[in-house]
């Protein structure tokens, strides 16, 4: 009986500690995109991005509400949601991927590490395989920052821009991602 209890306690303790040490998350991640043309500059900012990072497996997952993008002009924001992203039909954009060269990162040692990330990016209901380079900076045992800059072409995701306003949009948008991860402690 004692032995059983011992094993159960050990495994429970282990399972909790294992799950508690390798997951990092944020609910206030930052993503912005920028389009520059001679006609106008368009910039939108989203500071409510939810993301998880598993440092044991290198898995990363992002969830972005289209409605949370803030534009300088309210009408731009309405058009973004109504005419381009169709936010009612496709409320979220998401990314699920993996850090390819996880071994290059020493999570016990603070510092900056370049990583390759590849995975599936879903925007406007269209999923594409993407690959980009990002930077992980280990701040402490419970804090990791992640940044990346890449470009996204609206037409790859079936976002149609009518010819009348085509001059206002750059062919590809520069997307900047900045995540400040904290150690994830399950509420259960």
């Amino acid at each position: 009986m004692n032995k059983r209890f011992f094993w159960l306690t050990i495994s429970l303790a282990l399972s909790i500690s294992v799950s508690a040490q390798n997951r990092f998350f944020t609910k206030t991640g930052h993503i912005d995109f920028f389009s520059h043309t001679a006609v106008e500059d368009i910039k939108a900012v989203n500071d409510q991005v939810t993301s998880f990072l598993d440092i044991a497996t290198g898995e990363m997952i992002f969830s972005v509400l289209s409605r949370s993008f803030q534009f300088p002009k309210p009408l731009m924001q309405e058009h973004f949601n109504e005419n381009y992203m169709e936010s009612e039909k496709f409320p979220k954009a998401s990314f699920a991927g993996k850090i390819a060269d996880l071994k290059a990162v020493d999570f016990t040692k603070p510092g900056k590490y370049q990583v390759k990330v590849s995975g599936k990016l879903t925007i406007h209901g269209v999923t594409k395989d993407v690959e980009t380079i990002g930077e992980l900076s280990v701040v402490g045992t419970d804090k990791i920052d992640g940044t990346s800059v890449f470009s996204v072409k609206p037409e790859d995701y079936d976002i149609r821009i009518p010819s009348v306003v085509k001059a206002n949009f750059a062919e590809s948008m520069k997307v900047t991602v900045q995540m400040n991860y904290q150690l994830y402690i399950s509420k259960k």
Partner: peptide, 18 residues
């Protein structure tokens, strides 16, 4: 014990957490 050990890792993948 073994099941318990692996349970949290498998049952709660990142998608569930998200």
């Amino acid at each position: 014990s073994f099941i318990l050990l692996t349970f949290p890792l498998n049952a709660q993948n990142l998608n569930d957490l998200m």
